[in-house]
């Protein structure tokens, strides 16, 4: 049976991809951010997961506003990155695991989640930046197969935080019922507090982010008391992306250990966070 061995929460803004492209990891601006990933790199190197389920949102590469699925899952053998218009160089394609994708889709739909199934799916920076952060070397990215799980956090109404947590729980059940000898990790990406639009652009909220990180392991339901609108007020309209971390958290169950964490302001216009959980149950 497949085993969910751990999960990571991580930011995914394009500026990070740009810094990686230009090798700025030890630049004074970037160093406090990238050093937070060292424990993740070591853990990935030690555990060598076979498959990564990557929870993210598309920002206008694969999905336009003509048709916005609330939850979409990739079921392709390969996922291409492409030009998003403002200059980030596309990365090499990522290898999928269509059979596992279909199992996941099948299991989630039986669990009453209405999933959009995608046999072709371009992946944008929301996907590629976390991949480069988890596996800085091409060789590492080539070794892990991916399943993109795309969430609408662009056009209201977004799914509720509660729905995201429950979807995560269902993803956990789906992985546990997959009859293949695979080690799986789940990545919840986006956030943390940031605001890109309006006069309040540049808004961050350290206090809220810190409480979110503090409670994520033992009390993820804490976030559920805020509607997405209330969250937008606290952490900025784009900070609401943090609800995608709840999908990761929900999938892991309650027998987990926090192995590392980092939080840093600013990365571009955002507060950036990373957290690594290991599943003790497997």
């Amino acid at each position: 049976m497949a085993r969910l061995i751990g999960g990571v929460g991580s930011s995914h803004v394009p500026a990070i991809g740009n810094a990686i492209e230009r090798n700025l990891q030890s630049d004074p601006y970037w160093q406090p951010f990238f050093k937070g990933y060292e424990p993740v790199w070591n853990w990935m190197e030690e555990k060598k997961p076979d498959v990564a389920i990557l929870v993210y949102n598309d920002h206008g590469l694969n999905f336009f506003l003509d048709a916005m699925p609330t939850f979409a899952i990739g079921a392709a053998a390969e996922y291409q990155n492409a030009d998003e218009g403002w200059g980030l160089k596309p990365l090499d394609p990522f290898q999928g695991d269509p059979e596992f994708s279909w199992h996941l889709i099948d299991s989630l739909v039986h669990d009453e989640f209405d999933i959009t199934m995608c046999q072709e799916m371009k992946v944008d920076h929301g996907f590629t930046v976390p991949m480069s952060l988890m596996w800085p070397r091409q060789q590492g990215r080539d070794r892990v197969k991916v399943i993109p799980l795309c969430v609408n956090v662009v056009q209201y109404p977004f799914p509720t935080a509660r729905r995201c947590l429950k979807l995560g729980e269902a993803v956990g059940r789906a992985v546990a019922s997959y009859e293949a000898d695979l080690d799986v990790v789940i990545l919840g990406t986006g956030g943390l507090s940031h605001q890109l639009d309006g006069q309040r652009a540049g808004h961050t909220n350290r206090e809220f982010d810190t409480e979110f990180l503090d409670r994520l392991k033992d009390d993820p339901e804490w976030l559920l008391k805020y509607s997405n609108y209330e969250l937008a007020e606290k952490v900025g309209p784009q900070g609401v992306e943090m609800i995608m971390w709840l999908i990761m958290r929900g999938a892991l169950g309650n027998d987990i250990r926090e192995l590392s964490r980092n939080y840093h302001i600013p990365i571009s216009n955002t507060a950036a966070g990373v957290i690594l959980f290991e599943n003790e149950a497997v």
């Binding site: 056009q155 209201y156 605001q195 639009d197 309040r200």
Partner: peptide, 9 residues
């Protein structure tokens, strides 16, 4: 929300 436009319908 001051200084904020929510991208709704």
């Amino acid at each position: 929300i001051p200084g904020t436009i929510i991208f709704d319908g």
